[in-house]
């Protein structure tokens, strides 16, 4: 469990975090969502003490982080950054093993664990003796994850983990990440600027704007929120194609089918629908009961129902 209490931070005269208070629960995937400059990365780095708060405190498992030694704290927290941050002079094997070596594990233990990890992240042992530069961006990011979880940290911090990847690979990595059983009980704190990623990966989403928390809640709550900040954020995001408020009563049957095929039975003519489209996904909200429904993919949707590809 991670708790922020009255945390403030300024760089020079610019205040990047203003009186931050929130909690992250054990085992949840917590997304820090915000535009660049919103303070989300600063917030993340306070958890493993790469940045210290000006005032206020961060509590890790109930203990004030100030009282924990920086190095031993970081050893217990996995850290994954955007570009992977792999060490180019070390083989994949040694990259993954670095935290185990720092912990002073024996050679056999390390070997065993490395082999276990490479399979868990969906690669095979042939990769172990290669250097990072010979791997694709996606593979490098997988190695980054393996390295971060090698010594079974109780939490991992991820700073824009998949942003550098192309859209198709990004989606695949996100799916793999969700399904990774090794991470099931690990607390995950994920920084992203991508709504889709936040909606997909997060158990809860925390929206940050100009150093202030404007919203915390589940993805469903996020999309159904009447919070003006959330609505603005959705509207301003350039990759959201359209937000449309349409009373169900004004739709034809075929149209209803097109938009909400999985959940048709839950919707009646009295339902107000908000549709949110972007290039990958469509979300649909019933404003009358607050329920949230997702359409798997707008591409699938159009292929299935309209017979053509966008």
């Amino acid at each position: 469990m991670i708790t922020f209490k009255n945390v403030n931070k300024s760089f020079a005269s610019h205040q990047v975090l203003k009186n931050i208070n929130f909690e992250i629960n054990q085992g949840e995937a917590f997304c820090l969502l915000g535009k660049s400059g919103s303070g989300k990365t600063t917030l993340l780095k306070m958890i493993n003490k790469l940045i210290y708060p000006d005032n206020g405190s961060v509590f890790i498992e109930g203990k004030d982080a100030k009282s924990i030694n920086d190095i031993s704290l970081r050893r217990n927290i996995g850290y994954i950054i955007q570009s992977g941050g792999l060490f180019p002079h070390l083989k994949i094997r040694d990259n993954i093993a670095i935290s185990l070596k720092l912990d002073g594990k024996s050679k056999d233990q390390i070997n065993h664990r490395v082999k276990e990890l490479i399979v868990q992240i969906g690669l095979d042992e042939n990769y172990l003796d290669r250097h990072p530069i010979t791997l694709s961006g996606g593979q490098q990011q997988r190695i980054g994850i393996a390295r971060a979880i090698a010594n079974n940290p109780s939490m991992i911090l991820m700073d824009e983990p998949f942003s550098a990847l192309d859209p198709i690979l990004r989606e695949q990595m996100q799916n793999d990440f969700i399904n990774m059983t090794a991470l099931k009980n690990t607390t995950k704190v994920i920084v992203t600027h991508d709504i889709d990623e936040a909606l997909k990966l997060g158990n809860r989403i925390c929206l940050l704007e100009n150093g202030e928390i404007t919203f915390i809640g589940t993805p469903q709550e996020f999309l159904s929120s009447e919070n003006q900040n959330v609505i603005n954020f959705l509207g301003e995001e350039s990759n959201i194609l359209k937000i449309k408020h349409t009373p169900m009563s004004q739709m034809g049957d075929q149209e209803k089918l097109n938009y909400i095929p999985d959940t048709y039975e839950e919707v009646n003519d009295q339902t107000n629908i908000i549709q949110v489209f972007n290039s990958n996904n469509a979300y649909v909200k019933n404003t009358s009961n607050g329920n949230f429904y997702s359409i798997k993919s707008i591409k699938d949707h159009f292929i299935t129902h309209l017979g053509k590809v966008l």
């Binding site: 790469l50 050893r75 217990n76 950054i81 180019p88 935290s99 720092l102 390295r147």
Partner: peptide
């Protein structure tokens, strides 16, 4: 790279 190293403790 340095940040990753620091993050690893």
């Amino acid at each position: 790279i340095i940040e990753a190293g620091k993050g690893l403790g």
